[in-house]
């Protein structure tokens, strides 16, 4: 609170849990609303509440990062790398999203091609549906939480210049990969 009355509206808001409105810190976890795949900022208790599998409309986003080894993104028919592959629902369709100036461009991943790739590298079956993604760099794959993907997509969109994103976007992607390698 920056002072009484209307003054609190003259400054940036205090982050609050979007499920129960408790004040939370700048560093906080997220919960995915399955209805519209939107991320909600969550306090620790609300995040815990939605960690149970199959818990209704919301699902807690885990914070694990794993190196999944080699994966050939092109064999999947994903047009651009880097891309995030997320399973929409348990055993349902796989969707690849590529960061772009318009946010993310989505395309469905060919199921048969995915099965061939996963047969060669079973770790690709590791992510939890909806809340964990596979980040494909072109040669390697990493398991990352979806909130990290959303954050990267937002940063890419805001810094995109010209046809290929420009140096700022290349720098952003390099930094993301560097960060991934330090976490796995």
């Amino acid at each position: 609170m920056s002072g009484p009355g209307l003054r609190r509206f003259t400054v940036a808001p205090v982050p609050r849990c979007e499920l129960c409105a408790t004040v939370i810190g700048e560093e906080h976890r997220h919960v995915l609303a399955l209805a519209d795949r939107s991320l909600l900022c969550a306090c620790h208790p609300c995040h815990l509440l939605f960690q149970a599998p199959g818990a209704g409309r919301f699902r807690a986003v885990p914070d694990r990062y794993l190196a999944l080894g080699p994966a050939d993104g092109e064999a999947l028919g994903v047009p651009v790398t880097p891309a995030f592959v997320v399973a929409h629902g348990e055993g349902e369709r796989l969707v690849a999203s590529c960061p772009s100036p318009a946010g993310t461009t989505e395309c469905e991943v060919d199921g048969a091609a995915w099965d061939r790739l996963a047969a060669a590298n079973p770790l690709l079956r590791e992510p939890v549906a909806d809340v964990e993604a596979i980040y494909l760099t072109g040669r390697e794959a990493f398991l990352v939480p979806v909130d990290a993907c959303y954050a990267l997509a937002g940063a890419v969109r805001s810094r995109w210049q010209g046809g290929d994103g420009g140096p700022a976007v290349r720098h952003l992607l390099d930094a993301f990969l560097h960060d991934l390698r330090s976490r796995v």
Partner: peptide
Amino acid sequence: PRSALVADELVRCLVQLYG
């Protein structure tokens, strides 16, 4: 309760504009 956060942001938008 999320609507409270939206309302908060609405007020913030206008207060900051008039400010």
